[in-house]
């Protein structure tokens, strides 16, 4: 059997399943709240894996269908880009 306390939900910020469940116990009902308190969904991959996993946990805990859970906002840039490349482009335009 897997030790549930050790299951990682967000690999970018090392957030464990048990931490997500604790936040739900503390009263979080939305993905936005969990995202902001745990940093899940805010790392390099921007929640590509953990977003769905956390939505599943919310769905189970509050007995609501997953489609009724609002996903958090997808923030730009879609993929990471270096400050150097952005600066170069700015200088080029000038």
């Amino acid at each position: 059997m897997t030790n549930k306390d050790e299951v990682i939900v967000c690999r970018c910020a090392d957030v464990k399943l048990s931490e997500i469940q604790e936040l739900i116990k503390d009263g979080c009902t939305t993905l936005d709240e969990i995202k902001r308190l745990s940093r899940a969904c805010m790392g390099q991959c921007q929640g590509k894996t953990c977003r769905n996993l956390i939505m599943q946990e919310l769905s189970k805990a509050h007995s609501i269908p997953i489609e009724a859970i609002k996903p958090s906002r997808f923030r730009p840039p879609v993929v990471t880009i270096s400050l150097g490349s952005l600066a170069e482009e700015d200088n080029h335009e000038k």
């Binding site: 923030r75 880009i81 400050l83 150097g84 952005l86 600066a87």
Partner: peptide, 10 residues
């Protein structure tokens, strides 16, 4: 900092 990569903006 030119090597740092932007992850998100808001």
């Amino acid at each position: 900092l030119k090597h740092a990569r932007v992850v998100r903006q808001w």
